[in-house]
Amino acid sequence: MLILDGLQKRYGDVVALDACSFDVRPGQMVGFLGPNGAGKTTAMRSVFGLVDLDTGVITWNGKPVDRSTWLGFGYMPEERGLYPRMRVLDQVCYFGRLHGMNRSDATAAAGRLLAEFGLEDRAHVRLQDLSHGNQQRVQLTVALVHGPRVLVLDEPFSGLDPVAAEMMAAVLRDQADNGAAVLFSSHQLDVVEHLCEDVVIINEGRVVLSGRVDALRAASPHRYVDVLLDGAGTDWAEGVRGAEIVMRNADRVRLMVDRDSDPAELVALARKAGEIVEFAFLPPRLSEVFREAVTR
């Protein structure tokens, strides 16, 4: 298990990490969320010793991480970077060897992954001659080539088109299913909601919420009510006591109510206003949980 325990880091007056603690188990995929500047990148860098922490310790299977542990980790930094003039296969192979593989194993693994990502015919092209999307795939290949037990990815979905994002999601899922501990940060909360069972939300360097996505949604003090009435507009919703209108659009309205509200009462109110086409009484979406957590 990867444990980040009490990480503390200040840059001058800015607190980047403030007693930040959480863990990632093998086979678990954790979405790491937080507004810009919350400390996500600092926390992820510190897993690789790239940040000189003021206090705090990071352990893998009970032992503090060190250079030999890192060889078994895979990392995709926020600011992507590879050798622009190096050929794709050479590049992936080089990083495999830096992680301790011998030449033939590294070449075999690199070839297999490149084929898997549809890059086999680009293997001998210089990185700088690839499209942006393909460069991203090479970056992912570099993070995976040595079969890491821990995978840390900083914003892996940023800048990807929907097809590429889907592929990335499938790869990460696959890694977790094969026993890797996967930690990735993202601003695309819809992606995270569908992809991860667990999330960690940090704000101003502190973990403000963490756990199962479903449990976090259920634990919220609020419920959301989606109602679509046939041609009745949304003005009726203003009369609902204890409800806050979150969104209104033509005949569709989304209300925020207390967790204890009775759905039957709400249905009755809606029915009085018009014919119900759609009605849903749901816990908040992950994005709403996120917003509640970081604006608290």
Partner: peptide, 13 residues
Amino acid sequence: RSRVVEVVLGTMH
């Protein structure tokens, strides 16, 4: 400049 160093430094001093 190419930022590749962040990945490399995950493996060596």
